[in-house]
Design a protein around this nucleic acid. Structure first.
Length: 268
DNA sequence: CACGAGACCTGTTCGC
DNA sequence: TGCGAACAGGTCTCGT
């Protein structure tokens, strides 16, 4: 489910409900969800700490606690809910934190890919991430130079979280379509003009995604409606919004990829 | 360094 | 109707 705009939407919803609350109890229902620390040390360490701040780094939800950080990555199917006590455990609930305001934070994750870290050194987990695409550090010049310094196909490079943090399959397809760039184009051949277009497109699709509270697909519905404004993603056979040519689906690095063969044609 | 394949999981949809 | 295959918003690890 979640890419940068979906995670940002979740963080914004979470923040006012849990900042300032103390953690009264912790239940780990699927042990593999927790990368660190081992077993019962988790509950012992987290109980009693207070939530100081809720933020996002790339696709990670970051809870700064009194003495540790709790990092959560939702991967494909993870989601976080705040519920009133008493809660009954639902199918696929993996981690439950009881708070001092009689609410409960539930991490639910159908496919069990999601992961959490409780650590005093969040940089050990987040340190390898590339720049935040909505930050000042992400400039057209930086992007152009970074693309030229590698020799990769554009789409897998944009999906690489050590290159830029936060893009996933949807927003990458959307950004490449908006920038009129082919997902297989070699990064070291992108001109400054094209890099500028890509920079604008990335900013634009992420900002619109956030404005629309993310995208809701399949059975995962969170209220976002960006899925109604997709240009390319998931629109195989439907007309390109720019030129009417049917959108085509192809495979790039094992990920399904959607392009307009007319607009995104710098490849052939 | 770049890339493909397979793994990790459960659930839904598609094709015969 | 039934049943296996394909597919899903992510990332890691291994082999070439």
């Amino acid at each position: 489910m979640p890419e940068l705009p979906e995670v940002e939407t979740i963080v914004r919803g979470l923040r006012p409900q849990i900042v300032g609350q103390a953690i009264r109890n912790a239940e780990l229902l699927w042990p593999r969800t927790l990368v660190t620390p081992e077993g019962d040390k988790f509950a012992r360490t987290i109980i009693g700490q207070r939530v100081r701040e809720v933020s996002r780094r790339g696709k990670f939800v970051v809870l700064r606690l009194s003495v540790s950080h709790l990092l959560i990555h939702l991967r494909m199917s993870g989601d976080i809910f705040i519920k009133d006590k008493p809660v009954q455990i639902e199918k696929h609930d993996r981690l439950i934190l009881s708070l001092s305001n009689d609410k409960v934070m539930v991490f639910n994750d159908t496919r069990k890919f999601g992961r959490a870290w409780l650590t005093k050194d969040p940089e050990a987990v987040l340190g390898g991430l590339g720049p935040e695409p909505l930050s000042e550090a992400f400039t057209p010049e930086w992007l152009g130079q970074a693309l030229r310094s590698r020799k990769r196909r554009l789409k897998p490079l944009l999906l690489d979280q050590t290159f830029i943090a936060g893009l996933g399959n949807i927003y990458t397809d959307e950004a490449l379509h908006l920038a009129r760039l082919h997902p297989l184009a070699a990064s070291d051949t992108v001109t400054p003009e094209q890099a500028g277009r890509l920079w604008r497109a990335i900013r634009q699709v992420l900002e619109e995604g956030i404005r629309r509270n993310g995208a809701s697909i399949d059975w995962v519905y969170r209220g976002g409606d960006f899925q109604n404004y997709f240009r390319a993603y998931g629109r195989t056979g439907q007309p390109c919004p720019e030129c009417g040519t049917p959108i085509e689906r192809m495979l790039v690095g094992q990920r399904s990829t959607h392009i307009c063969p007319f607009c995104q044609n710098e490849e052939l």
